[in-house]
Structure formats: C-alpha cells, structure tokens
C-alpha cells in the first residue's frame, strides 16, 4: 500500500482534503498532531516546532542552527511514521524531503482563490484588496521558507505528480482523483522503493542524533551503512570522526559508519588571521 503526501497553498484546504482522502482510501491521516510526539521525544515546545514549519529565517526568528535541528527532529519522526504505510501525510513538509520514493504520490492542492479571499477577509477583518495582498505575502513567505529549509521552491509543479486547482474542480472531485491516482500500479510499494524509504528513515534518525552536536552534518544511508559528511579543521578531524562514529554506532540498525571530513576553509581562514 502507498503513501499520499499532500501539500497546499493553504493549511486549512490541505488538511480538509487530506482528511477526506484518508477516509475515502481507508488510510491514516498524519498531520501536525504528530508534532506532539516530536515535542515529547525531543523535549522541544510544540509552538517552536510549528514556528519552524511556518517561519522563514529572520533576525527576530529562530536561529538557523535551531531551525535546522528542529526540522531534523520533525523529519525523523515523520519518516518513521511513513514507514508504517497506508498514510496520508500533510502539513509536515514531507513533499520536500521524501524524494525518490516511487510509492509516494505527491499532490499539490491549490485553493479556490475566491474562497481563500473571502476566508482571509473574514478572518483578518480586512478589505478584499488587502486580503489579496495578504495572500500574496503569505505565498512569498512560504516560497522563502521552502528555499531556506530545503533549497527547493515548493511552488514548482515538477516537485509533484499532480497539481489540482480547486478554482473549477470541487473538493470531492479532487479527493476522488487523488484516490483513483494512488491506485495506479506505479504507486504500489516495490522492494526498491521500500528500501529507499527505510534508508531515508535511518539517515533521518542518525542526522537527528548527530545534529545536536554537529549542526553541519549531511547523512545518507544504504542498508545498514551510514555515510556522514561534515567539515572540520585538520587538527579536529580525528576527534570529530571518532565522536561521530561512536554516536552513530549506538543507533539501532546502524552497521558501518563512514565519515567524510572536508576542510573547514572558513574557520581555517578565520583562525589563520588571528
């Protein structure tokens, strides 16, 4: 059975469609309720996790180190949940990090623009023109967020299998289209696509564990082999490698740990100028 990942230009619309798709397909719906588990597991306030998913980096916002750490936590818990299969996932930015998993159907739902304007007008108690400006501003912020967090523009249609606009298509029809599409053979889990997802989940767990100490790590997994890339000064190289190997080696399912340390040229330049 497959995974359905739903992204939308409006959280409310995405949630509504996700719940209906889950009901129609007989899947579980995973939404931001999952942040409660993330919060308990990593002892981070839920409000901060929500901010991480909504706010692009700014002077007044969370530091980029904390943002990346919290994103790694969210990613780890979400990927573990997706391994369970038969899941509709929404609101956790999974469309940006579940890449190359063929049994994951990625859908973007675009809200009915008139409906969105009316909702914004009522919620914010503003005139139509101002509501349109607010919607456009939110879109720009979301684009900035996705570029800053995953270096991907989430508005780019090539990141999805299907984009449905609710301007003309009714929500019920969109739900039917998504449920019908996930039934196509290409979205059946295959040995290779399940392995891809398992590798991503393991890499996510290792990354979440390492990022508390080393914020710049990049992690890939292939079976039980984990490859970690990081940067360090020449004199710290050995110590850092050993610590990473020790930390990663303690994680369940990890066999071999390969560490690639690259020269930290910026720190080196700073230190040589002292």
């Amino acid at each position: 059975m497959s995974i359905i990942i739903i992204a939308s230009d409006s959280y409310k619309t995405g949630r509504e469609i996700s719940e209906k798709v889950a009901e129609a397909a007989g899947y579980d719906c995973v939404d931001r309720e999952l942040l409660k588990s993330v919060s308990e597991k990593y002892n981070v306030p839920e409000a901060k996790l929500i901010r991480t998913l909504e706010e692009p980096p700014s002077f007044m916002g969370l530091s980029s180190k904390l943002r990346n750490l919290y994103l790694a936590y969210i990613q780890e818990v979400t990927l573990s949940r997706l391994l369970e299969d038969n899941v509709v996932c929404h609101g956790l930015a999974a469309h940006l990090y579940v890449l190359g998993v063929s049994h994951a159907l990625k859908v973007r739902i675009l809200s009915d623009f008139e409906k969105l304007i009316n909702e914004t007008t009522a919620q914010e108690n503003v005139a139509r023109e101002k509501a349109i400006n607010l919607i456009k501003k939110r879109e720009t912020l979301k684009k900035r967020w996705s570029l800053a967090s995953f270096n991907v523009d989430e508005n780019e249609p090539s990141g999805y299998d299907l984009v449905i606009s609710l301007n003309q298509i009714e929500p019920g029809e969109a739900v039917k289209t998504v449920v019908d599409t996930v039934g196509y053979r290409k979205f059946e889990p295959m040995t290779y696509s399940i392995k891809c997802l398992k590798d991503k989940e393991l890499a996510g767990r290792v990354r979440a564990a390492l990022m508390e100490k080393f914020s710049d790590v990049k992690v890939q997994a292939n079976g039980s082999t984990v490859i970690v890339e990081t940067r360090a000064l020449k004199r710290d190289k050995r110590k850092k490698t050993e610590t990473i190997k020790k930390l990663a080696g303690e994680i369940k399912d990890v066999g071999l740990v390969e560490v690639h340390v690259f020269k930290d040229i910026f720190r080196q330049a700073v230190e040589s100028n002292r």
Binding site: S102, L105, R108, L110, F113, N155, P157, S158, Y160, D161, L162, V163, I164, S165, N167, Q168, I169, E173, T177, D180, T181, Y184, K186, F187
Partner: peptide, 26 residues
C-alpha cells in the same frame, strides 16, 4: 504557475495513459 490550470500532470511516475484517464475523467 500552476494556478493558471485546473490540472497539472507530471508525466514521469504517471504514464501517458494515466494522464489521459485523469483528463477524460475531469
């Protein structure tokens, strides 16, 4: 810009025949 369209279909995982089915249905 996807909002110019009712449906955007990415022919990669979805095959030509799947796209045809989706369009005919809509």
């Amino acid at each position: 810009d996807s909002s110019l369209y009712d449906l955007v279909i990415h022919v990669h995982k979805l095959q030509v025949s799947d796209a045809v089915e989706l369009i005919c249905d809509a």
